[in-house]
């Protein structure tokens, strides 16, 4: 009775007319051990179908890595770094005063004093220089007295004129 049923189902099955439930019945029948000898050749088919259902996809999906890198944010970060750099560099320069470098002073007053001292020294030496140059005035005086010689020439000129007449 069961066998008869199975044979009918097989015929329907080959014509593609069985429902999913009927196919389940067939699969169930052919995976059991007591299959009728003349239907034995169907067995591998149905066992293959059932066995193949177990195969699984084991590779993992790299969903996270698919996020594309956004280059806009790179430029934003670069700008931020540059801004910070510009903002901080002058402050760090004035704060760290290098005492040991020649000619630099940390206190403005000290620097002012030093500068005025240097300027005073320069003007002192300058005055000394100009005072020695003052002797040149004596030369001027000498040339002024030499002008009297012209007077002598004038007078001798007059004398020679009187001699001609």
């Amino acid at each position: 009775m069961v066998l008869n049923n199975i044979e009918k189902l097989l015929e329907k099955y080959e014509n593609g007319e069985t429902s999913l439930k009927e196919e389940q019945v067939l699969k169930h029948y052919f995976t059991k051990d007591n299959v009728a000898p003349h239907l034995e050749h169907y067995k591998p088919m149905f066992t293959y179908f059932l066995g193949n259902q177990q195969e699984q996809f084991t590779k993992d999906l790299p969903l996270k890595t698919k996020r594309t890198f956004n280059y806009k944010w790179l430029s934003v970060a670069a700008v931020a770094v540059i801004m910070l750099g510009v903002y901080f560099t002058p402050i760090t320069d004035t704060n760290t005063c290098k005492e040991n470098v020649v000619g630099t002073f940390c206190e403005p007053e000290e620097a002012f004093n030093e500068v005025s001292k240097q300027l005073a020294m320069i003007s002192n030496h300058f005055n000394k220089g100009t005072s020695t140059v003052n002797y040149l005035n004596e030369v001027n005086k000498g040339t002024a007295t030499l002008n009297y010689l012209n007077e002598i020439e004038n007078s001798t000129g007059i004398i020679f004129k009187t001699n001609e007449y």
């Binding site: 099955y13 080959e14 014509n15 593609g16 007319e17 050749h41 169907y42 591998p44 088919m45």
Partner: peptide, 17 residues
């Protein structure tokens, strides 16, 4: 689909026999 399925099933059965 039914026709193709029926053909495929018959071919498998024939070759298996």
């Amino acid at each position: 689909v039914r026709v193709a399925l029926s053909r495929a099933r018959k071919t498998i059965r024939e070759r298996l026999t």
